Simulated scan of single mutants.
Amino acid sequence: MTVPDRMDRAFHDRLMGILADVPDPEIPGVSVVDLGIVQGVGTCDGDVHVNLTPTYSGCPATAAIQLSVRQALDAAGLHDVGIRLVLSPAWSTDMITDAGRERLKAYGIAPPPRGAGSASLRSPQPVECPRCGSSETEEVSRFGSTPCKALWRCRNCLEPFDNFKCH
């Protein structure tokens, strides 16, 4: 992310630090920054705003994310910082940070491989179990606990887990 011309680095870093503490409402172990939902901070006509991109069009958590970001900014005394919903470029699982991938795994969700994109939606590539690390896994249902995840099961430890869908 680049710092807009009319905003200094310290203020940008402060905003990003605040946003890094805002958890995703559906995956509280991961921040909206780590999921790549925060597309940056910008300025327009002297006004500062945070750019948010939903994980997919119609994501039911979008309003909750906007509210959580607003509350975090207000709690920091940044009432004048706006929030913009940005749909282009579209969010992709490649926007998840490395730290976010590790946090997903620690939360019990198999993170998508980097660079997988939509070509992997029905790929025979094995999914690693986030609990035991086994690649002896199988998809149980294309639909998991949220629309952006699929339900899988590990044949080794027999535990079910969500797999973050690539897109």
Rank of each mutant, 00 (worst) to 15 (best):
P28W: 13
F11H: 10
V41A: 03
R6D: 10
L87D: 10
G46Q: 10
P60N: 06
V30G: 01
A119S: 14
W91Y: 08
P25I: 02
D80C: 04
A99Q: 15
D21M: 15
M16G: 01
Q39G: 10
H79D: 09
A63S: 13
T93L: 05
W91L: 00
S123K: 13
A63Y: 11
M95A: 12
D24W: 12
T55L: 08
I27F: 14
T43Y: 04
P23M: 01
L121W: 12
L52I: 15
L85Q: 06
A61Y: 10
M7Y: 02
D8W: 07
D98Q: 13
I83R: 10
W91D: 00
D98C: 00
Q39Y: 10
R70H: 12
P113Q: 07
P113F: 00
L67C: 07
Q71Y: 04
R114C: 00
H79A: 03
K105Q: 09
M95K: 15
R122P: 00
W91V: 00
R6K: 14
R122S: 04
I18A: 00
G100P: 12
D24L: 02
V50K: 09
R101Y: 05
Q125T: 11
I96Y: 04
R9E: 14
E128V: 14
C59I: 06
V30F: 04
R14N: 08
A90H: 11
V48A: 06
I109N: 01
G82D: 06
V30H: 03
S31Y: 05
A61Q: 09
D34Q: 14
P124V: 02
D13I: 13
F11R: 14
G82E: 07
G115M: 05
D8P: 12
N51W: 02
Y56A: 01
R9N: 02
V41P: 04
T93W: 07
N51A: 09
R101S: 01
V3F: 02
Q66V: 14
Y107M: 03
P89G: 00
P54L: 06
A106T: 15
R103A: 13
M16S: 04
L121Q: 13
P89E: 03
R114D: 01
L19Q: 10
Q39F: 08
P25Q: 04
P4K: 12
R131L: 00
G108V: 06
S88W: 15
G29A: 05
L19E: 01
P124K: 10
Y107W: 15
A106C: 03
L104C: 08
W91M: 04
P126S: 02
T97F: 05
I109A: 07
V81Q: 08
Q125Y: 08
I109E: 00
M95Q: 15
A20Q: 07
D74Y: 12
A10N: 11
V32I: 15
V30R: 01
L121Y: 07
H79M: 05
V41C: 05
V127G: 03
C44T: 15
V38D: 13
A99S: 14
I96P: 07
D74V: 05
L73S: 04
Q66Y: 09
